[in-house]
């Protein structure tokens, strides 16, 4: 039973990691129906920014909490700027082009950013400091749950709730929903569509940056390539949960995390990915729009 609980928590951690990245993915898709492949790279850039800021602040002798907060804030600002700029450069000029063009542009952006960080920083793995402080009340449970895991669960849940509230109850959220339904109509009733899309990218990138900081502190190492694999898994999670749905992304990510964890624990890690993807295919056969996705009639 202990083993089951450990695997359950392991899957929860892994799922929450996927979820933090999947949230931004699914939100951008929900609003402008673009699979933003560069999202994983934004996550990676967030982690690199936090690493640099944390390094400088540690040298200046700041305390742990202040470093975590400031590094996260800088990472969020920096990544949001990247997200904003990427949209303006790579997606906006081809917004009216067929969807495939935007997809190719996104893949190109992803490769560009990877190689940019590779050249500007390094191809080596870099140690990432554990920015998350040790909570004393967790000491007795250290072998089961670590502080970084607890923080990741909490933040994932909070981000999910905050995004849902933003989309459901704020005016920008209403504008987002309108834009998602019909860009032309939204523009006709006075919504600044460009601004709505920019905000979407900024918010999506901010969640990716938070994910970058927390996940890198949890794992303890980063390199220029981390965004790619994490991005693929997050994308799968978003599809599994129903792409475009915020709670769906989290649910999909958790299902994926648990699937992988239990399969590794009880069967074998050799075919972990194979099993995860077989599971995905299975779900999509029975629910083509994902677990929480709504199948909408195609607009004509």
């Amino acid at each position: 039973m202990d083993y089951f609980l450990e695997l359950f928590l392991g899957g929860l951690t892994r799922g929450s990691i996927y979820a933090l990245i999947a949230l931004g993915y699914t939100m951008v898709y929900g609003i402008i129906e673009l699979i933003n492949f560069a999202h994983g790279e934004i996550y990676m850039i967030g982690a690199f920014t936090a690493l640099i800021v944390a390094g400088v602040l540690t040298l200046m002798g700041w305390n742990e909490i202040a470093i975590l907060v400031i590094a996260s804030i800088v990472a969020v600002i920096y990544s949001s700027a990247y997200g904003f700029t990427i949209e303006k450069i790579a997606y906006k000029p081809i917004r009216k082009a067929p969807r495939l063009s935007a997809l190719i542009s996104a893949i190109g952006m992803s490769m560009f950013l990877q190689n940019y960080v590779l050249l500007a920083q390094t191809s080596d793995f870099l140690p990432f400091p554990s920015l998350i402080p040790q909570f004393e009340f967790l000491e007795p449970y250290a072998h089961i749950i670590r502080p970084s895991e607890l923080v990741i669960y909490t933040v994932t849940a909070s981000v999910m709730v905050a995004l849902t509230i933003m989309i459901k109850f704020t005016s920008i959220g209403k504008a987002m929903r309108a834009t998602s339904q019909d860009k032309t109509m939204a523009a006709l009733v006075g919504i600044d569509v460009d601004r709505v899309i920019s905000v979407t990218f900024i918010v999506g990138s901010a969640t990716a940056a938070i994910g970058g900081v927390l996940i890198a502190s949890h794992i303890g190492q980063i390199n220029f390539y981390i965004g790619f694999i994490a991005g693929i898994k997050a994308f799968v999670a978003a599809v599994l949960g129903g792409i475009g749905s915020i709670p769906g992304a989290v649910l999909g990510a958790l299902v994926l995390g648990w699937t992988e964890s239990f399969f590794t624990g009880y069967v074998s890690s050799d075919y972990e990915d194979v099993f995860a993807f077989v599971f995905l295919v299975f779900i999509l056969i029975f629910r083509p729009a994902g677990i929480l996705g709504r199948s909408e009639a195609e607009k004509v």
Partner: peptide, 20 residues
């Protein structure tokens, strides 16, 4: 005797398995 997936985000499950 296990093969792990290179580049995966974390290896908690495998680590639990080693422990178990």
């Amino acid at each position: 005797y296990e093969g792990i997936t290179p580049g995966a985000v974390d290896y908690t499950a495998v680590v639990q398995k080693i422990k178990n």
